[in-house]
């Protein structure tokens, strides 16, 4: 149990997907202007990541031992179709949730964090439970980074920045400082 919890914490803060592995940068840059959308995007991500982890585990256990060179192709196809199915199911079962997630759900398919999660999970040889906790941790970490970024951007919206720093340059430098701050968590790993 301890190890499973550790995987979750480490994926969430120590090796944060966005700030340490640079995965899922598109939503990080794109939808981090408002806290509310950031939270929603984060939630959608947690959900899809958990599902993707399940899919990856299934493929790894039952199918890929027979054809290892198909790993990448099968991952991407399965994740893409799975997101499609989930989208249809949510639309049918809970139209309210569907409206709330909006465009974010289909966008997630091409989010490198999802494929990255599946690949990391495979490379590290996680089992089902470990994989799930890794996925939840990574999703929470992504949400955390998104919300932090959105809060900073909302706060700084009216501040007077030099014209050359407006837009992406400023976002990147803020992200750099956030990433710097998150490196402080690296000490956690040896704290057991």
């Amino acid at each position: 149990m301890g190890e499973v919890f550790w995987i979750l914490v480490s994926a969430m803060v120590v090796n944060n997907f966005t700030l340490y592995y640079f995965l899922g940068l598109c939503p990080f840059m794109g939808v981090s202007a408002r806290v509310e959308t950031a939270v929603r995007m984060g939630m959608a991500n947690i959900f899809v990541m958990t599902m993707a982890s399940l899919c990856a585990w299934f493929l790894n256990t039952f199918i890929l031992p027979h054809a290892p060179y198909l790993r990448l192709i099968s991952f991407i196809v399965v994740i893409a179709s799975f997101v499609q199915i989930v989208e249809m199911v949510i639309k049918k079962v809970s139209p309210k949730l569907f409206r709330q997630l909006g465009i974010y759900l289909p966008l997630i398919t091409t989010n490198c964090a999802i494929l990255g999660l599946a690949l990391f999970q495979t490379n590290r040889g996680y089992g089902l439970i470990q994989g799930l906790s890794f996925a939840v941790g990574a999703g929470l970490g992504l949400t955390l980074a998104l919300v932090l970024m959105a809060s900073i951007r909302e706060t700084g919206e009216l501040s007077d920045v030099p014209s050359i720093a407006k837009g992406m340059a400023l976002v990147l430098i803020i992200a750099g400082s956030l990433s710097l701050a998150f490196m402080g968590f690296a000490g956690l790993l040896s704290a057991t």
Binding site: L19, Y20, Y21, F22, A169, L170, L172, I173, A175, G176, S177, S179, L180, M183
Partner: peptide
């Protein structure tokens, strides 16, 4: 990692 963000910035 922070260096990546800062350098591009």
């Amino acid at each position: 990692p922070p260096g990546g963000f800062l350098t591009l910035g």
